[in-house]
Amino acid sequence: MGYALGVLTLSCIQGIAALGLAIFTGFTGQFSLGHAAFMGIGAYTAALLTYFAGVPFVIAVVAGALAATVISLVIGVPTLKAKLRSDYFAIAIMGFGEAVRVILENLQITQGARGLPGITRYTNLPVALLALAIMAWLARNFILSKYGWRAIAVREDPVAAEMMGIDLFRTKLLSLGASAFFSGVAGGLLAHYLMFIQPVMFTNVQSTQLIAAVVAGGIGSLTGPVLAAAIFIIIPELLRVANMWRLVIYGLMLILIMVFRPAGLMGYHELSLEWLRGLGRRNRRLTTNA
């Protein structure tokens, strides 16, 4: 029973991180290969605060998320200001993720590559569920706000959006900051659930898992990526698949989704009663809406 609860807790945490990337990739249309680094920053900041300074858990997690946001702005301002194409940006943020890992591995206070053990466990299933609910509510409000609408406009057609007077730089930067905040919260929760963190947890593999969740869950959906993130945690646990096969399957899945159903599990839709009712008479517009 404890094991099942643990898997569910991890699913909730991964769901929060997926929400963040959904804002950036699914709604703003930007590609990131380094969001795990923001999780890492959140995790380390929160863990160090509770571990060394005895800061209350909630404040530590929020501080970690804010730290991730600030760092995301540090990398986001120069790269987004330069109006980098989204693929240049993707590679720049990947290099940034590498740099974060190298720094975490070489700092004294993070105890290098060996990792930071002995973090108090504050995260459990109710806490993770509550956090997921709050973050989902925040994400929904963000998307429904005028900032969210601007982000969607940028995703659909950056040129037209700019002509309408939308500031591309500010919109993308805001999305990046918001998504880094979500990743930071997920990192902080993760650190206080696993009680041990290590720089290697926040590398490419984690970034690609998040991308896989967002793409499979559906571009332009919040509930889809959360669902997909949970499925990607739960199914390998059930099947006890080796980590490597999991990545092989994720890769294949990304191609298959792009080729056959770019909308993903529930692209441009949210999990709701209406969506479930409409499931039977789904039109083809979705799959051709490239």
Binding site: F31, L33, S86, D87, A90, T208, I211, V215, L247, V248, Y250, G251, L252, M253, L254, I255, I257, M258, V259
Partner: peptide, 11 residues
């Protein structure tokens, strides 16, 4: 295209 390329690379 990028997502598909990423998938091929991971695979």
């Amino acid at each position: 295209f990028m997502i598909s390329a990423m998938g091929a690379s991971m695979f």
